[in-house]
Structure formats: structure tokens, C-alpha cells
Design a binder for these strands. Structure first.
Lengths: 316, 316
DNA sequence: TCACCGTTGAAAGATATTTTCGTTTCGGTG
DNA sequence: CACCGAAACGAAAATATCTTTCAACGGTGA
């Protein structure tokens, strides 16, 4: 029945100059298979242990020797013997392998990320799906961004006397984000929130100034209008839009295309378009900071310093 | 210097009647992210340990406490302390998680190193690096989000009579984003931009209302102050922060942790923290929309309809 | 300079794992 | 059917590992 077992037990203590590193590299993930292979050569108790281990790696990984022994109605010694038979130096190592296996199984079963978010999805799935989706949006945006246009836009912004950024609703926040960033590196920028103010501002622009319009749909009148005015006044105009064929591009010297993810009721387009727009804005910002490094760097640290005292000390 | 750390060790600052379900189910795979998040609140020795652990999970999983202590030139006590700070009951459990992480890394390929953005990087590289970085941030955030806390926050927001959202600077935009979203599904929300207004608003809150504070540093006085007021008025308070040990959490019933990417001059922390914060906000939004689907769905389409005529027709 | 507070590691204390060893079980045999 | 020996098994001792305690160290502010 079990001559192998005997050998394993025998060679353990000192007699032989037995090598001991019998070359059995602890199983990585093929544990279930190993259990099946070795089961016949196991004694009843050991089979119970092996079964438990193969059946619920994650659960067993959480147990101590004693715990597993109790669970399987055996003793610590038997658990250790089983671990040895499976090729590990001891239970501790089996347990580590088990944890690894559990983690693999965990990551393996993807919660069907491609499906849409349902009303009854558990919160964990919502997180996974949203994250997956936004990651996808970022990849798409990066892939679809025209670096020539981007470079041109950066050049224009870096050299602008002043910059206006137009955006409404969700895009308005992106406009503000860009404005904040430009201000931080010492450039002059505004993001009028009120459409009328936007037009009023646009009228003041001229050659050497830059106007940026941010609109996902590419057809938001309140944003197109000030851009048109700026365009006609001779300012350099940039459109950040998900519709490179939309009306807004009519008045844009440079067009930066944002990506569009499929939307649904629980996943409005505004969500992914915002992610996409922000990536574009970040690219603009970094590009500009590079170009104007000499003045941008000190400006950045200056604004950093200025804010320092607004933080409570309590955090190292 | 670091009274927070002490407090964590001592006991979870019991003051507030707040439940604050310590929950924190040990991180499965988000360990590197967690290390980065918690690094600032670590002492030097602990940082060495955390670094070793994050740098070579597989290697460290093979070590005993003593081994890891020697490797990092510290003591067993420090190793255990670090494990605790990372959210595990002790070193044994950290080790198990490490084994799991190693197994995952093994199966899923290498994590593609990111070099920092240089001043003379061509624009195409900037795009690629930024996109990669933000994608990483999203993955980290999703992995590190405590779904229990998230669920609790969603429940609170979904049932709130009214909601205030506080945020300043870059986080202010995120606050506005959340507010816009809540308004869209028929909830009552405000995001006072002025710190004084914020406090004034906060005073009006009471049980059944919700206050959300968004701050990357976790120590922005202008944001903490209104949250404290809201907390003391009996409102349910939520903190979205990158520093779960920062002062802000003192007044938060629920803490949602955003991830922290390593920053540099051309890649300010504000950039990745914003990405992280927005993902959290999106998760909140979708979660709330699910819970209040009956009223959220019509509200969403109503606002969609209302905006339709603001878009010029000529798009297609 | 001194007192204080946070940080740190050595060593004691508590758990978990491994080994030892005696008891039990089982199959075969006289 | 009683007896023997080999194998299986588990209780408990021995060891390794992990956790906690506590005193010393070092930096910081009064």
C-alpha cells in the first residue's frame, strides 16, 4: 500500500547522508492535481486532510495546523505528514502555497467586467467595473490623441499672453482644472463659468491669446459661441472634444479628440468623457510645464510653499 | 510629530459615537498601493520594512519575522508593527498576503516600470507615461477601496435629507463634480467654494444630513473645519482622503481612502489624487443611483432632456 | 541645557509548528 | 481465535516562530 510513505518517514531523521532536497519544488498551483495523484498512496486520515486542502485552499490557508487538524478530525502530526507528502518542507510552507493558490483563483474569476453595470450589482462589482471602464477610456484616449495637434496646442498655450477656457457642466470642471494648473505655473488663465461672461471675455482676446473650448458633444452652444468670438478676434483656438466632426471644430485651430466609451443609464457619458478630458488637460499641462520649465518650476514650488501653512501640522 | 501613529497603535480613537467599523479587510493585492498610501505616516525603520515588502513580495514571503528584520536591519518588533500598520493582525497574515501577491504577479506579467517624466521627454512619451500612471492610480484605488465603508457611505448619501460637499483647490473640483451628480439624480447637494460659507452651511446640518470632505492631504484646515462642525451637529460625515490617518478622519464616520502615486516636479500629487478621488466619487454616484433607482432614473433622463436643446443640431 | 516624547530593539511571553513516542488498528498466521 | 508485527495515528514534549513588553536611545522644543 504505502511504501512511499514509509520511506518519507524513514529518511527524516539523521541516518542516511540522504540528500533531503529530493528536488520536489513545492507545487505552484497544480495542487489539486498533485492531491489526486498522491491520494492512493495516502492513509485515510491524510486523505481527509488533502481533500480539505484541495477543496478549499482559501479557507485552509486561514487555519493553523491545529485548526486544520480539528476541521478534518485528525491530529497536527497528520497534517504535517500530509504537507510533507505533497512536497512541502512543512505545514507552514503548504499554507503559503495555499494562500498563493487562493489569490490566483481570486484574480482569475473576473466579475465579467465587460458587462454593463446592473441595478443590483454588488458594490464591489461596481468599483471593479467603473475602474476597468475608466482605465479603458484612458488607454483609448492616449491611443487616439494626435500628438502633432497636442504639440501645437502646447506651443500656443505656452506662449499665450492670456488664456480663456470655456466649458459648461461637467466639462466646466475640467475647464477649471486646466485653469488652476495654468495659474500654478505662472500663466494667466480664466475659466468663466457664466456663458455670457465667457463671450464678454472672448471679445477681449486677440492674436497671441489662446481660447480653449471643452465640450464632449462638440455641439454645446454656450461653449461654441465664445470660441467663435475668440476665433474671429484672431486668438488661437483649441477644441477638446469627443466629436472631431462637430460644430465646435469649425472655429478651432487645433482639435484634441477625447474618447467616448459606451454609455448606459447607470454610466452616463459625462463620466468617461470627463476622464478622457482630464487626461488631455494633464498632457497639455505637463507639455507646457516642460516648455516653460525655467519659470514653471519656481512658480510651482512657490504656490506649494504658499499653501503649506494651510495644512494642520498633525501629519508628519 | 506623529501623534496620529500613536493613536492608531493605542486604539482607534474612540471619541466619536461614530461606528467607524474598523473593518479594513486585509488588502488582497493592493499592497504596493497601500504601502505608498501609508508610507508618509511611517517611521524610518518601518519604511524600510514596507519598502522591502513592496519591492519583493515573493522574497519576503519566504522569510520569517526574524529574517525580514535582519534583511531590513531592524527588529522583529518593527516588522510586526509595520504589518499592523498595513492592516494585518500580525506578521503571519502579512506573510500570507505576500504569498498571494507573489502568486498573482507570477501569473499576471510584470508590472511595467515607469520612469519619471523628464523635462525633455517628447510629447508622445508624456502622453504614454501620464496615461499609464493614471491607469495605475485607478487600479490601485479600486483595489484599496474598502467596500464596506463605501457601502455605508452610499447608504448614508442615498438617504440624506441634504448633503454638503467640502473641498478646496483641486479637490474643490471633485466636490463640485459630486455635487453635480447628486443634483442630477434628484438629491439635494451643495459644494460651497468659500471656506466661510462652508462652515456657515455646516452649522445648519443635523442628524439625517450628510457632509463629505474631500482632501488629499487629509489635513486641509479649510475642509476639516466644516466637517468638524457637521460632525458635532450630528450629521453623518464622510472623508475622502489619501491619508486615512490624517486629522480629517477624526470627524469622519466613514473614511474612503484614495491612492497616492509617487509624485515629482512634473507630476504633482494633485494630478493622480484627483483621478483617484473622481473614481471614488463615481463609485458613490453609481452606488447611490442603484439604491434610489426608482427616483434616480427619471431624474437623470429629465435633466438630459432639459439640456438637449442647448446643443446645436449640426453634429452628425 | 533639560525634560519630554516618539522611536527602536532586546528579551520575555505567547502561539504555532514539528518531532517524539506510546497506543491503537489491522491483516495475517499458527 | 489468540497472537504478532507493521503501519497509522494522535497526545504531548520540543522547537521554531511570532507577539508583547519595556527600557534605552535620540531628537525637539522649552
Amino acid at each position: 500500500m504505502t511504501q512511499d510513505v514509509k520511506e518519507i518517514f524513514a529518511d527524516r531523521r539523521g541516518t542516511g547522508a540522504s540528500v533531503r532536497s529530493v528536488a520536489a519544488p513545492p507545487a505552484p498551483a497544480a495542487l489539486a492535481a498533485k492531491v489526486r495523484t498522491l491520494a492512493p498512496s495516502m492513509t485515510r486520515s491524510m486523505q481527509r486532510v488533502a481533500e480539505a486542502v484541495a477543496g478549499d485552499p482559501a479557507g485552509c490557508a486561514a487555519l493553523t495546523v491545529t485548526g486544520l487538524a480539528e476541521l478534518t478530525g485528525t491530529s497536527e502530526a497528520t497534517v504535517v505528514r500530509t504537507a510533507r507528502l505533497l512536497g512541502y518542507p512543512g505545514y507552514r510552507d503548504l499554507r503559503l502555497a495555499l494562500a498563493g493558490l487562493a489569490a490566483q483563483q481570486e484574480s482569475g474569476r473576473a466579475p465579467a467586467l465587460t458587462t454593463d453595470i446592473a441595478v443590483d450589482d454588488p458594490i464591489a462589482d461596481v468599483v471593479a467595473k467603473l475602474a476597468h471602464d475608466e482605465r479603458q477610456t484612458l488607454a483609448d484616449t492616449a491611443a487616439g490623441l494626435d500628438t502633432v495637434q497636442l504639440g501645437a496646442a502646447v506651443a500656443a498655450l505656452a506662449g499665450a499672453r492670456r488664456t480663456d477656457v470655456y466649458g459648461i457642466g461637467a466639462s466646466g470642471l475640467v475647464a477649471q482644472d486646466l485653469t488652476q494648473k495654468l495659474l500654478r505655473i505662472g500663466l494667466i488663465a480664466h475659466a468663466p463659468g457664466d456663458p455670457h461672461l465667457a463671450v464678454t471675455n472672448a471679445v477681449q482676446l486677440r492674436a497671441g491669446d489662446v481660447a480653449v473650448a471643452i465640450t464632449h458633444s462638440g455641439s454645446t452652444g454656450d461653449v461654441i459661441e465664445p470660441l467663435r468670438v475668440a476665433f474671429e478676434r484672431g486668438a488661437t483656438t483649441i477644441a477638446v472634444t469627443g466629436r472631431p466632426d462637430g460644430p465646435v471644430t469649425q472655429y478651432a485651430d487645433h482639435v484634441l479628440t477625447t474618447s467616448t466609451a459606451r454609455e448606459s443609464e447607470l454610466r452616463p457619458a459625462a463620466m468617461s468623457s470627463r476622464t478622457s478630458q482630464l487626461l488631455v488637460v494633464d498632457c497639455l499641462f505637463v507639455g507646457i510645464a516642460q516648455r516653460t520649465y525655467a519659470s514653471a518650476a519656481p512658480a510651482l514650488s512657490a504656490s506649494y510653499e504658499a499653501l503649506a501653512h494651510r495644512h494642520r501640522s498633525g501629519s508628519r
